[in-house]
């Protein structure tokens, strides 16, 4: 079928280094470098070894960033992740104390997380009329509530035998095992999001889920899978967390979902869906972590650190908006 007017359309992508540097991810990379320089200046003990040593504390949260990013890319949300971590950690500790062999304990942790994710997935796909914010608000309360019941009156449990968990917390040189797994997940999730059909469908659902459905994207299937994977990784996170705390209590994992969402948003992933890249989330996660480690080393009040992070998050979203409206006003004025 020949085009009547013979008009041609260009198909060459416009790739330039300048564009890459000026993108959100590019700026984040610069910020990452800047923060590391800053930390090096203010903290005499800010060395790679030290940073790696303190990482495990934060890695458990960074884990959750990847599957959370998938949920956010689709335009949905999950605020029950912290509670899932709590429940999975509780179940793992309880089963360990009950004498279950370590492999079984691992299975219990992972399974608990996966089941929680599947419950969220089921509710989200069967009741599409409900905002996932509300669904996961409910499950957030239920999952932690179940953990509370399991923990009983004491509200906490300590591992009687921490051998298995000590294994997980091992290191290769100065680098904890967890770090490798986090990097592995980072690569895996990023490749899938950027280069696989699954990733393209994610962005489609987040940009316009109805068009995606009409075009053959299996929306419900992808939602269910994403929530389940988030649950599974929450289980992984719980196991790693337990290997550091040797126990679980009713406040385990509190705020994890907020941190994951904050890291994702700071990394350029919009809660509205369809926008942002995983690379941004990864860079922002490590940027924030390095900042926390650095500030912690100079004994800054942890609450002040929280304030700084909160302010950073808001600025990260506010500043682009302000600069956009300034440039719009400039365009208007220049034409007058």
């Amino acid at each position: 079928m020949a085009g009547k007017s013979g008009r041609t359309i260009s198909a060459t992508p416009d790739k330039s280094l300048k564009k890459a540097l000026l993108s959100w991810e590019g700026m984040l990379l610069l910020l990452f470098i800047a923060i590391n320089i800053l930390c090096k200046c203010i903290s005499p003990v800010y060395t790679l070894t030290n940073v790696l040593r303190e990482m495990p504390k934060y890695l458990t949260e960074i884990f959750l960033l990847f599957p959370m990013a998938y949920i956010l890319l689709m335009g949905e949300i999950d605020i029950s992740v912290g509670s899932t971590v709590c429940l999975a950690a509780t179940m793992a500790c309880l089963s360990s104390n009950a004498g279950v062999p370590f492999i079984g304990v691992l299975a219990v942790g992972l399974l608990t997380g996966t089941v929680c994710g599947m419950i969220n997935g089921f509710l989200a796909t069967r009741f599409r009329e409900l905002p996932t914010m509300i669904i996961t608000l409910g499950t957030q309360i239920v999952f932690r509530g179940i953990a509370e019941i399991a923990l009983g009156d004491g509200g906490s449990v300590s591992l009687t035998n921490a051998d298995g968990f000590r294994m997980i917390a091992g290191k290769v040189g100065p680098v904890p095992y967890m770090f490798f797994i986090v990097i592995l997940c980072a690569v895996l999730f990023t490749v899938i999001a950027e280069k696989r059909v699954f990733g393209r469908s994610l962005y489609a659902i987040g940009s316009n889920s109805r068009t995606a459905f009409y075009s053959g994207v299996k929306v419900n299937q992808m939602l269910f899978i994403s929530y389940t994977v988030l649950g599974l990784l929450a289980g992984v996170s719980a196991l790693f967390l337990t290997s550091a705390t040797y126990g679980a209590n009713t406040t385990t994992g509190k705020g994890f979902e907020m941190d994951a969402i904050a890291m994702a948003v700071f990394g350029g992933i919009s809660t509205a869906g369809g926008k942002g890249k995983l690379v941004g989330g990864i860079i922002s996660a490590f940027t924030i972590t390095c900042l926390r480690v650095g500030l912690g080393q100079i004994n800054m009040n942890p609450q002040v650190i929280l304030i700084i992070l909160g302010a950073l998050l808001i600025c990260a979203v506010l500043l682009p908006n302000i600069s956009q409206s300034i440039s719009d006003k400039k365009k208007k004025a220049s034409r007058a």
Partner: peptide, 26 residues
């Protein structure tokens, strides 16, 4: 910040959740 800065409410209030709680501790 939400109305004029056009920041999404969940993000803005999440940020302030950290900030104001931090102030409380301070």
């Amino acid at each position: 910040i939400i109305a004029y800065g056009k920041v999404m409410p969940i993000i803005a209030t999440m940020g302030f959740m950290y900030i104001y709680r931090g102030f409380a501790y301070l």
